[in-house]
Amino acid sequence: MLRFLFRRLLVAIPTLFLVITVAFFMMRAAPGSPFVNERQLSPEVEKVIQAQYGMDRPLVEQYVSYLGDVVRGDFGPSLKYRDKTVLDILKENYGVSLKLGLSAILIAALMGVSLGVIAALRQNKVADYATMTLAILGVCIPTFVTAPLLVLFFASRLGWLPTAGWNNGALLNMVLPVAVLALPQIAIISRLTRAGMIEVLRSNYIRTARAKGLPDNLIVRKHALRAAILPLVSYLGPACAGLLTGSLVVEKIFNLPGLGKFFVISALQRDYTVVMGMVIVYALLILTLNLIADMMYAALDPRVKLS
């Protein structure tokens, strides 16, 4: 186990390095500059600013010193939000994204697995068709359509829920964003579970268990579910990526103080340091999740050894 962890960490470092390098040079290759605005600086003043941020040096030199800073945990000041450092922005906003993402994945797993199991157990019955239709719809309707429709209905029309805002993470404020984030994931997870379950239920060991006269209830819970969930675990990484993309939309529509919106805005405003900080954090997150997924996989499936 430890050896496995160590090996994966060794791979993670060059991966992260690659991410930083590609992102750094792509960002710098982009036309425009963080210091160009409607109101323009005189050339003298602009030179001063460039020097303040070390942007008057050759690009490679800036890159090397940036790497050094990152290793020391210094992500630099934001070029656009001049009262804040990149670390400030990350610290002040990661909580909301994390809370949203975790709630969404939890609910998606709960609902998705339940729906998938029901569909599998009632294959080709109404419940099955209903679940699978829902699953296909969930994948086919973009989140930026579901979000405003849900807001219009549950918030503006019925008045049950707030239309937007975070309000320090009040439960009611979380319902709609989490639902919008979770819906496509529920769709995918229920499909995965259903397929896995059907496969497992047909396998010999389940037949044996059933032949032994074990109650169905127990078979599903103890044997089938465990095996059927395996493909789900390896879906964790992509699911995280999905939540990430979803959060860009959800944070925008629901006006939430999360990290996602800073990425798009900062990329458009050429706030190099903030973009880099976001890229690094998300790459780290995905790497970690993949690692966790691998470990869970091994824990659930005795056939897989971590080597």
Partner: peptide
């Protein structure tokens, strides 16, 4: 293939919780 018609109570609970 599957003949198990009734979802287990556990699954129901999960679904309801969601």
């Amino acid at each position: 293939s599957a003949d198990i018609e009734k979802a287990s109570p556990l699954i129901r609970k999960l679904l309801l919780a969601g």
